[in-house]
Amino acid sequence: MHTARPTARGPRAAVLALAVLAVGVGACSADPGTPETAAPPAATATSPVVTSDGSAAPPTRQLDHALDDDLYDAAVADDTALVRDLIARGADLETRGDNGRTPLVAATKNKASEAAVALIEAGADVNAKDDLQDSAYLYAGAEGLDQILAATLRHGADLRSVNRYGGTALIPASEHAHVSTVRMLIAAGVDVNHVNTPRWTALQEAIVYGDGSQPYQETVTALLAAGADPQIRDADGRTALQNAERLDQDAIVALLR
């Protein structure tokens, strides 16, 4: 007579029971709807990125071109409050608009001084140039925009940078006899004897493009006091004195002699 195999008892039975229970729990945990095994969310533009050394890199800024466009327009309109608000909301300080202008260059060319200063204080690049090779620093110097110029000088203006004519900011400032601007640039350390591509110095341009009036006399006086060399010749071989005599600028001639 065949005897049935007895059912497992004791410790072995307990082990088998635990194994079965573990399998059941694993099956439940495999449920994709449970938090433990749900797939991680897809990375977003602001998710931290892990670098090669295992540290977390800063999140990438989500681009918002509408904000950038608004910042450009607000800068041109000299709407300082809106400029600051848009910067705080993440607008790109170096976005480019018409003719390759940044908001700062656009504000400067529109004489929007308050907005320009706000952009500079927020970190806008004072040396960034547009398609005409004008930066906020160079243009402010050329046009006598002293409030903007002073801010650019406080925030890293490159005194050796040149415009499309190969001239420093001091040369067109002297050409236009912006006396306070000339003095500011001299004090900042701009080279008074720099020669531009057409072979003019600041002193030569103050004479050749000037009229010998009081502002030009003050400009020439400031340049000479700063070490401007009157013996540097222009493209035609003339000195500053020869040009002043040729143009009948008697007061300038007296200063040069």
Rank of each mutant, 00 (worst) to 15 (best):
A17Y: 09
L138S: 10
R199Y: 07
R5Y: 12
A17W: 13
A88P: 08
T221L: 10
A122K: 06
A115C: 10
Q214H: 14
T46Y: 13
G26E: 05
V76T: 08
T44K: 13
D125R: 02
A118G: 00
G123R: 06
V49W: 09
A122G: 07
V23T: 14
E36C: 14
A142Q: 06
I171W: 03
T197W: 08
P41T: 11
I120P: 00
A150C: 01
S29R: 13
V117D: 00
Y216D: 13
A122T: 04
G26Q: 05
V76D: 02
T181V: 03
L67V: 08
L224K: 05
S174Q: 02
Y137E: 08
A187P: 05
E94D: 09
R5P: 15
R238W: 10
A30K: 09
L203Y: 02
L21A: 15
S113R: 00
V50R: 14
P58F: 10
I171E: 10
V20N: 02
A75M: 03
M1N: 06
L170P: 08
L86N: 07
P58W: 05
R238G: 03
D78R: 02
D98Q: 15
R164C: 11
A122C: 04
K129P: 03
A74R: 09
A13P: 05
T80A: 00
K129T: 10
L224W: 05
R61G: 12
C28N: 05
A17T: 14
R199F: 04
L159H: 12
L104S: 06
Q214Y: 07
A173L: 07
T239V: 02
G144C: 06
D130L: 10
D64C: 06
A74F: 04
D64W: 02
L153F: 00
R61A: 15
E218I: 05
R84V: 02
A225I: 06
A30Y: 09
T102F: 11
D53H: 07
T219G: 02
R12M: 07
R257T: 14
T34S: 03
L241M: 12
G141V: 00
H2W: 05
Y139M: 02
N243V: 14
G90N: 11
H194I: 01
L170T: 10
M1T: 08
R84E: 03
D98P: 15
T46F: 13
A14S: 01
T46G: 12
D125L: 01
S213M: 12
R233S: 03
A150G: 00
N99S: 15
A222V: 09
I186N: 02
D98N: 15
A42H: 06
D229K: 05
H2L: 04
G227S: 07
A22Y: 11
A173Q: 08
L153K: 00
D130S: 06
T37P: 06
Q217T: 13
V25E: 08
A45L: 09
E36Y: 11
A142Y: 03
A39V: 14
R233A: 06
P103C: 12
Y139G: 06
A157C: 01
Y72S: 13
A30N: 09
A45E: 13
Y72D: 11
D158Q: 07
Q214T: 15
P35M: 12
A187E: 15
